[in-house]
Write a protein that binds this DNA or RNA. Structure first.
Lengths: 184, 184
DNA sequence: GAAGATTGAAGACTCAATCTTA
DNA sequence: TAAGATTGAGTCTTCAATCTTC
């Protein structure tokens, strides 16, 4: 796309010039990315108030959830960092807050003294149990329940495919790609 | 789910107790939400470096993109806030940064003296044109190109459906739900 | 009084540097 | 030397309060 309207600054010609350039950004692939973003952010916005009622921020909820799905209700700091979208520094601070709130505690890792576990406390388990039912209801209302069974399965299959390619390290700390080890 | 393992604190019984509780959080609907989150965050991570090469953060890119798709390359502050996931305060500061960088300017709104337009400068247009091609390539590589044509259309159709329900105000400032007015 | 936009104060996250252990 | 985790400094975002205009 070449720029051939040097006098865009003047008001009357501005709109026409903008139209010429808009083609670039109107690319359908950018729109697709925008859809993913809007759906994700929209869903977060829908679930935010219910989490807030329980005093839990979305990132905190994700950490609590990952811990609750792991053997012993605990995971190493570095594994939490790998599984979430936070850096190891961010995990340190988030775990600080949750520990301050009594939802988890740090425990030593016997096999490697550099490592630390974040481990759910009884209070942490109770909090998860208190939050999850309402949370599931909202996901049902704004995501799952809006799709026909066939459409839903196709949608989830595509998401899984994309996730596996785009986020290879998402299962660090678990023995297998589907948490199968937690049942052994 | 009832809690019947009061001695969870002691190491040996911890794992079994965790298993009993894990059922709650293993709900498939929570997993679905997690997939959306992982795909979105994974895609952001893939596109981040290329945006950074051009000195643009994701939120800034989204604002520049929305402006470039709007008539005259401009949008009111309040419309930007409605279209993005930022508050009006957040938009004020983000526009501050972009204005400081010379990518846009604030201009007065003739019909309502409370309002302000954020309007792309020539530098802003140039930046968008410089960033978009590489950005599109990455979306192609990590999202669009990974799906068969049929799967892709189905996926996008589902996303559109969800977006329309979950984010009703996403088109504030545009005349129609698909930016049709920009072509008049 | 309400809406559009901005500001001060505070929270959350990242980067780079640091400390400890492998 | 490298890996796990933390800390200080700086950036980005929000909330609540404020100012201007409707």
């Amino acid at each position: 796309v070449t720029r051939n309207a040097p006098a865009r600054e003047t008001a009357p010609t501005g709109v026409a010039a903008a139209d010429a350039h808009a083609e670039l950004a109107a690319d359908s692939r950018i729109t697709a990315m925008g859809l993913v973003s809007e759906v994700y952010n929209g869903l977060v916005a829908k679930t935010l108030p219910q989490l807030a009622e329980h005093g839990v921020a979305p990132a905190e909820f994700e950490v609590l959830l990952r811990l609750s799905r792991s053997a012993g209700g605990r995971l190493r700091m570095s594994d939490l960092a790998a599984q979430t979208s936070l850096t190891s520094s961010g995990i340190t601070r988030l775990v600080d807050r949750l520990e301050r709130g009594g939802l988890l505690r740090r425990t030593a890792c016997p096999s490697d003294r550099r490592g630390l576990f974040a481990e759910l406390t009884d209070t942490g388990w109770e909090r998860i149990e208190a939050v999850v039912p309402g949370h599931v209801e909202l996901i049902d209302q704004w995501l799952i329940g809006l799709l026909e069974p066939g459409e839903r399965e196709q949608f989830l299959a595509t998401l899984r495919k994309l996730r596996d390619i785009v986020r290879p390290g998402a299962t660090a700390g678990a023995a297998g790609p589907t948490d199968a080890a937690a049942h052994g």
